[in-house]
Design a protein around this nucleic acid. Structure first.
Length: 354
DNA sequence: AAAGCGGGGTG
DNA sequence: CACCCAGCTTT
C-alpha cells in the first residue's frame, strides 16, 4: 500500500543506514545470544510494557529454571508466578504457561513458525506474533510496539493519535514497505534499539540518529511533538487496612481471587475501608473469614501506585482471639516459609513487620 | 473503542 | 507530581 507519504524515503538507503548502525551499536542482551524461539518468546512476553533493564535478571533466572518448553510445561502455576514475582502484569505468566503447555502437547515442544498457529496461543497478540516470526524465524513480518509507533510517527510525521486503530494500520503499511527482506530480524530489533536509545520519548538525540536524513519530523522540527496520544486518566485512590496476624511462628496469608487485579497472588488479608469503616474492621473480618481478632497497633503505611489506581494501605498488627478457620482463601503458614508464595510488591514490603 | 492489568524509572 | 514503557484480553 504505497501512498504519497512513503515516497520521500529511499528504501534501500534507509535499510542500509539503519542496519549499519545496528550492526555497530546493538545492545548485547541475554535473549540475543541465540535465536531459540522459546527464549525469544519468553523475552518478548517479559518485555511487554517493561524496560529492558528490569527484564534482564528475570529472564536469566526464568531460563535457568525453565530452560525449554518442557520444564515450563511441567511446572505448577505457583512456581511460575513465583519466578514472575515483582515483574507485574501476572496474567502474562499464566498465559505463557498455558500456551507453552499447548505447544508441548500439540507441537512436540516446537514453537510454531506460522502466523495462524502463533496467533491462537494465549498471550500472543499481533506484536509478539510478529516479533517471534521475525526474530526467531527471520520472516519479514512487522512487529509494531510503542517504539515502532514512536519512530515511525516521527519518520513520516504522523500527527494523528497513534492509539487509534486506523493510524496503527497506516504505520504497519509503512513498516511493510521499509522492512528488510534479507534481514527482517535485525531490522525490527534495530528499530526497537533506535527507539530505546536515540529516538526516545523525550529529548530524542536526532543529531546522532542514523536515519535522520530520512525523517520528516526532524526535517520540520516537530519530533518533540510526536507521537500524538491522548493522556491517561488520573488514578483513583482506594484505602485498605492490611492485617498482620501472627500466632507463635505462624502468620495468616490469603490467596487473591483467580481473576482481576494481582490474580492468584498471595497477600496479607486486607479490609476495604470505604465499605467497612475503621470502626467495624473486626466485626467485618469475623463475618468474612470466621476469624475473631483484636486490632493492635499500627505498624506503618504502604502507598502503592498502579497504572489505573492507587492503594493506600494502613498496616496493623492483630491478635487472633479464635480461629474457626472455615475459609478456603486464608491459610496459616510458618513465617520462614512465606517466601515460597508469590506476593505482589506492595505486600512484599509488609514482610518487614512480621 | 475503551477499560483493566504492575512496576520501575525519569524530570 | 506527570509521563513513559519490547501489549494482550475482555467488554
Amino acid at each position: 500500500m504505497m501512498d504519497e507519504f512513503i515516497k520521500h524515503i529511499n528504501i534501500w538507503q534507509f535499510q542500509e543506514d539503519l542496519l549499519t548502525w545496528y550492526d555497530k551499536n546493538k545492545r548485547e542482551l541475554p535473549w540475543r545470544e541465540d535465536s531459540d524461539p522459546y527464549k525469544v518468546w519468553v523475552s518478548e512476553i517479559m518485555l511487554q510494557q517493561t524496560k529492558v533493564d528490569t527484564v534482564i535478571p528475570y529472564f536469566e533466572r526464568f531460563i535457568r529454571k525453565f530452560p525449554s518448553p518442557y520444564e515450563l510445561a511441567a511446572a505448577s502455576q505457583e512456581e511460575v508466578l513465583k519466578m514472575w514475582e515483582g515483574l507485574g502484569y501476572y496474567s502474562r505468566a499464566k498465559n505463557l504457561h498455558e500456551a507453552v503447555k499447548e505447544v508441548v502437547e500439540k507441537y512436540d515442544g516446537n514453537v510454531p513458525d506460522d502466523a495462524e498457529k502463533l496467533g491462537t496461543l494465549k498471550g500472543v497478540g499481533p506484536y509478539t506474533k510478529g516479533a517471534i516470526l521475525s526474530i526467531a524465524f527471520n520472516k519479514p513480518e512487522p512487529a509494531i510496539d510503542g517504539n515502532v509507533l514512536r519512530v515511525f510517527s516521527r519518520l513520516f510525521k504522523v500527527e494523528d493519535d497513534i492509539s487509534k486503530g486506523p493510524v496503527k494500520k497506516r504505520i504497519e503499511s509503512y513498516v511493510k514497505e521499509l522492512i528488510s527482506e534479507e534481514d527482517p530480524s535485525s531490522f525490527n530489533q534495530a528499530i526497537m534499539d533506535l527507539g530505546a536509545t536515540i529516538c526516545t520519548p523525550k529529548s530524542p538525540q536526532c543529531l546522532l540518529c542514523p536515519v535522520n536524513k530520512h525523517c520528516l519530523g526532524f526535517e520540520e522540527g516537530v519530533q518533540e511533538q510526536l507521537p500524538v496520544k491522548k493522556k491517561a486518566k488520573k488514578q483513583k485512590t482506594v484505602s485498605y487496612v492490611a492485617l498482620i496476624m501472627k500466632e507463635k511462628d505462624r502468620v495468616i496469608i490469603e490467596k487473591r481471587p483467580s481473576e482481576g487485579l494481582l490474580a492468584d497472588l498471595w497477600q496479607f488479608p486486607m479490609v476495604p475501608i470505604e465499605e467497612v469503616g475503621m470502626n467495624h474492621i473486626e466485626h467485618w473480618f469475623y463475618g468474612e473469614y470466621g476469624v475473631e481478632i483484636h486490632l493492635q497497633e499500627k505498624l506503618g503505611n504502604i502507598r502503592h501506585v498502579f497504572s489505573h489506581l492507587i492503594w493506600d494501605i494502613d498496616v496493623y498488627e492483630a491478635k487472633i482471639i479464635q480461629n474457626e478457620n472455615n475459609d478456603t482463601r486464608i491459610r496459616m503458614v510458618k513465617t520462614d516459609s512465606i517466601d515460597d508464595f508469590p506476593f505482589p510488591v506492595s505486600h512484599q514490603k509488609m514482610k518487614a513487620w512480621i
